[in-house]
Simulated assay, not measured.
Amino acid sequence: MITLVTFAPSFGQPAASPFCVKAIWLLNMSGQPWQREDIADPRSVPRQKLPALRAGDDIIPDSDNIRHYLEQQGADFDRGLSELDKATSRAFIRMAEEHMYFHVVLDRWGDDSVWPTIRDTYFGMIPRLLRGIVTRKLRKTCLDGMHAQGLGRLSPQERLARIEPDLQAITTRLWHGRFLFGDQPTAADASVAAMLANMIATPGQTLLKTRISEDAVLRHYVERSSDAMGKPSNAASAKLCA
């Protein structure tokens, strides 16, 4: 059976990282029986990042590569989509993973009121006396990277204005159905809804969390997505019970 190596559940989400949530949802939709292995330190896996999928002797890092592997095994996450819709889906995935994600990072690592909870949740395995010393350097490295990327130079109000067109684009797509491309979830939902879910789950009360939590369209979309993709498909459940 394939094994997803992932961060443990946190803040009401099945994993601390939206990319791990995405991988969990893709696995559930794939029909493959699978199991999870929670670890806190990803340095033992390729690229030293999670999620990673263990399939036999192979370890497949990165949620995009996991999607590709599952598709090679027969999964069709974009069943019924036109070529135009598939192109739009790719753009939504990149919007979520290459822009929206960094807003999650800054809400969690950059907000002084949120950071202590993040530190003690993400790095609870480090003895308390050492935790502050170790994580202070990690946080500085992360925020230096966000400053270089650009979003770290913006105020929370400016960041909210920057992400607003993304949120409006998601809302516009949802005019067409329960999910981004109709009444069944696709690969785009596994990325976009996982990102929104992590924004809502961030501890404290950041501007971004409030914006999404108070938007009924986005909040209900996250709830539908979690209900639809948060459990194994019937095929996988049958295999697990066999």
Rank of each mutant, 00 (worst) to 15 (best):
V192N: 11
F181C: 01
N198H: 15
Q157D: 14
I212N: 08
L167W: 03
Q35S: 12
V45F: 03
V192H: 05
A96N: 05
Y122M: 15
S30T: 02
P116T: 01
T135P: 04
D144V: 10
A96E: 08
Q72S: 15
A197Y: 00
D227P: 03
L218Q: 07
I93P: 00
I66H: 01
F92H: 06
N28W: 01
G12F: 02
V192L: 08
S237C: 14
R178H: 11
D112T: 08
G132R: 08
I170G: 06
L240T: 10
P116C: 03
L106D: 08
A187D: 02
R173F: 13
G150P: 04
R119F: 10
Y101E: 05
D41T: 13
A242G: 14
M195V: 13
I133L: 09
A75S: 15
V5R: 00
G230H: 10
H220N: 15
L130V: 13
T117D: 15
S237D: 11
G177D: 01
S225P: 04
P9W: 11
R94C: 01
T117Y: 13
V222G: 04
L151F: 10
F179V: 05
V222L: 09
K137D: 10
T6P: 00
P42W: 09
M146V: 09
L84P: 00
F102P: 11
H220W: 10
M199F: 04
L154A: 09
P165Q: 03
A23Q: 02
K86G: 01
L53S: 00
T172D: 13
N28G: 07
C142D: 11
L196T: 07
V114T: 11
R211F: 12
I24D: 05
I2K: 02
K140Q: 15
P165R: 02
R131L: 11
K140A: 15
I66V: 15
L154E: 07
S89P: 00
E98L: 05
W175F: 11
M195F: 03
P165I: 05
D112R: 09
R219K: 14
T202Q: 13
M95H: 06
A16C: 12
F179D: 05
G74L: 04
L53I: 01
R219W: 10
L218S: 03
F11K: 04
L50E: 07
Q157W: 10
L84V: 14
C20M: 06
L143C: 03
P156R: 04
C241V: 10
A148R: 13
M199T: 12
I66S: 09
I170N: 05
D38W: 08
G230L: 10
W25H: 10
T3Y: 00
M95E: 10
A216Y: 06
K231N: 12
D64C: 04
R173K: 12
I118K: 08
W34D: 02
I200E: 13
D41P: 12
R159M: 06
D76F: 02
K209G: 09
I2C: 01
D111M: 07
F123P: 03
E158T: 05
G152Y: 08
E37L: 13
L240D: 11
F181E: 02
V104I: 15
